[in-house]
Design a protein around this nucleic acid. Structure first.
Lengths: 192, 192
DNA sequence: TGGAAGTTAGTGAACATTAACTAACTTTGT
DNA sequence: ACAAAGTTAGTTAATGTTCACTAACTTCCA
């Protein structure tokens, strides 16, 4: 479990990455943002890498939860994907700083332990969507002329690009509205 | 124009970003890779930012060229998109280090001048594909039940995700083959 | 012979991290 | 019940290392 201070540090770290990129996520900036001194950070985390790992572990847990929900959710594939993406849109609207990290695998390239974690998260999301689509194809409510991996690539890829655009353009459009629009588009593309 | 040494520096910088992320792209690593001393780098570029800008300017030029080719290319939309993505796959296979940068907007967040450039490149690619699809819709060989912006989002998003996966998984699958497969999938999705 | 491209040896600033210490709590033994 | 002992979360000051970058000198080639 994470203490209140650890959660505060992780949230501040996320905000820093959003504002100034991974290069701006320094212990100095972090401590300044929270209002304690730099060494005080080390009362709560052993290292900077541990802070980043804390972020990724939270994301991994969310991905696992979402995957679990989707497995025990009996509904047509399109409804499930719509639900999953809507849930993610909700999360991003609540915590916009998430999006600068969750879809930015490249910022963790320099540390193997972080790179492995973020790839795990990407793979988990992929598997969840592929699973939904494959089941939908078996139940004959998803088109079968394209394999489930390619359809998942389309769904995830377009969703990721929309969210990334929102991020790098400083949230200058309504992500929730555009996201809903994309969900109906994806439904149309998947349907038989 | 760029001198031979400038090109060498830019190529080495690209490789460094691929191997160690933006955090590993230091003047020290760069000079070590090329086999000259750190100050020698500054005989060819005024600053580290200028090196990164040099990279992005090359990409911008490629994007402009590609956009120009597509405008003067008379063919059905699907053929044009297939041509464009194939050209990019060729480029990525020749210079794999490109892909760690061209689809990694996050790593330029800390420098406004770089951020602006990479967003320009993303927008240029989007516009090129949107233009092709819109023309295809007018010529009645692309589906019209989904607007051109959403279809472009799907095409670009899925292509980006495929390439990003290839990058973060250390090129452990055949990008060219998987890319060709995706191109036929995108064609199927776009067709009327 | 002069300028382009390299060198050596340095700069100050920023980096993550540690050492030494303290104030304010809580736990424990008698 | 209360003091000794231990814990938690913070401080200031400093560590060694790396960062981008520069001044001054040298080598090399047209």
């Amino acid at each position: 479990m994470q203490t209140e201070r650890q959660i505060e540090i992780i949230e501040a770290a996320l905000e820093l990455i959003t504002e100034k990129g991974i290069q701006g996520m320094t212990i100095k900036n972090l401590s300044k943002k929270i209002g304690i001194t730099e060494p005080a950070i080390y009362r709560h985390f052993d290292s900077k890498t541990d802070i980043l790992l804390g972020i990724l572990n939270n994301f991994k847990e969310m991905a696992n939860m979402l995957s679990g929900i989707m497995e025990s959710y009996e509904a047509p594939a399109m409804e499930k994907i719509s639900f999953m993406f809507s849930k993610m849109l909700e999360l991003f609207s609540e915590t916009p700083s998430m999006v600068s990290v969750i879809f930015s695998e490249e910022i963790f390239k320099n540390e193997e332990v972080l790179k492995v974690r973020i790839v795990e998260i990407l793979n988990l999301h992929s598997q969840t969507i592929e699973g939904i689509i494959l089941k939908g194809q078996k139940e004959k409510n998803v088109r079968e002329d394209i394999d489930e991996k390619s359809l998942a690539l389309i769904a995830m890829g377009s969703f990721r690009l929309l969210v990334k655009r929102w991020d790098i353009n400083n949230h200058n459009f309504n992500l929730s509205a555009e996201g809903k629009k994309l969900i109906t588009v994806i439904s149309k593309v998947l349907e038989k």
